[in-house]
Design a protein around this nucleic acid. Sequence first.
DNA 1: CCAAAAGTGTTTCCGATACACCCATGA
DNA 2: TCATGGGTGTATCGGAAACACTTTTGG
Lengths: 218, 218
Amino acid sequence: MSEPPKHCVATDAAVFSVVNGTLKILLIKRKYDPFKGMFALPGGFLEDTDKSLNECVKRELYEETGVDNIFLKMLHAYGDVGRDPRGRVVTVAYLAVINSSDVELNKTKVSENAEWVDVSSVKALAFDHSTILAEALDELRHEIMDSTIVFQLLKKRFTLTEMQKSYEVILGKPLDKRNFRKWIKQHDILFATDQTKMEGVHRPARLYEFKDKRYKRF
Amino acid sequence: MSEPPKHCVATDAAVFSVVNGTLKILLIKRKYDPFKGMFALPGGFLEDTDKSLNECVKRELYEETGVDNIFLKMLHAYGDVGRDPRGRVVTVAYLAVINSSDVELNKTKVSENAEWVDVSSVKALAFDHSTILAEALDELRHEIMDSTIVFQLLKKRFTLTEMQKSYEVILGKPLDKRNFRKWIKQHDILFATDQTKMEGVHRPARLYEFKDKRYKRF
DNA sequence: CCAAAAGTGTTTCCGATACACCCATGA
DNA sequence: TCATGGGTGTATCGGAAACACTTTTGG
């Protein structure tokens, strides 16, 4: 057996957020060929200094968008010949959701091409990133029902209505208020603070926090 | 930005079967260092001639064990530094199940070290393959309830009791006969042939076939 | 007629869904 | 007192689980 062949390895992140009641995906406008001018998922090559794939995707995300300290769930690897015109690249896709107000895009030179784009208006993406995005969105809809990943999307304190809205935007359908509250309560992941949020001319809403902000599957 | 670094990429397969009523995993006894003499999952490096990761894992599996024409589901990628003492290797793990009687192990020089090993008696494996095996088994238990992957495990014709036994061995717990039959019938994936299987001194069992042997999620 | 596995329905339970009214606030 | 969103409970439905007896065969 000869020396094993070597290949480029990369990570890509599908990072979702809810902004103004719509589901957004964090994309980078490419400055160089291939696919110059098109949108792509943030990501990049695995470096020797990355101790793990997880570290790689976090580093790339930070460098390209300023997003830091975020939970990323691995989704799938893509390694078909021809998926990158420059040569073979095996990429590992990750999923994340964040609260967009925790992030200031365009604050560095490198991240100046990062944008929140409406998922519903995303057209063709660079490479096979349209496929990755579609699969990530599908996975997100499962994850949100099945894990505590929604933690990432909300601020430290939030009302149950805000939480429900996040679910509705991600799932793309309305939920029943009473059933949603019963469901979320039975998971026992929240506690009610003694504070309320007053906004507008109506009864103030109780503010909640997560008991444990770590990712956990139900 | 400099040239992207290159890395070894590999695939590994966790191939399960049920033999004599016990759950088995297909392992290779390593002939060379590192981990010489230890068991490992079958797998190997991605070659330039492999047009996809899927093709790579199928090729490796065929070369090392003679197993051919099998459905493999991608599970997860592992890329931590140090998981292979020879240098960094990013590996992509796959899951499969097969009917062990469709395969003749040890029929070639290269595959002479392949063995079916009781999952319950597997000790330490080479590399991080113990982790991969554990995660694969977990995934298998979900897959079997959620997809038609059990197709791979059974012969062309089989009785419902044989099918149920496969589920029981994989899940590691007994199932209720009537509930199992109701459940499997409601998925509408089988048809009853007009033949029966006579074996022993008791009522013959009807033989069934799959309507469609392709992998499908429920 | 006996042993052994095949085959078959009904009841119960629990989680998911549907659904409508009162409450607290500021203007 | 009104407009606005916050907050709450019950009845129904449907799928999952529990559960036991009859049938067919060869010896």
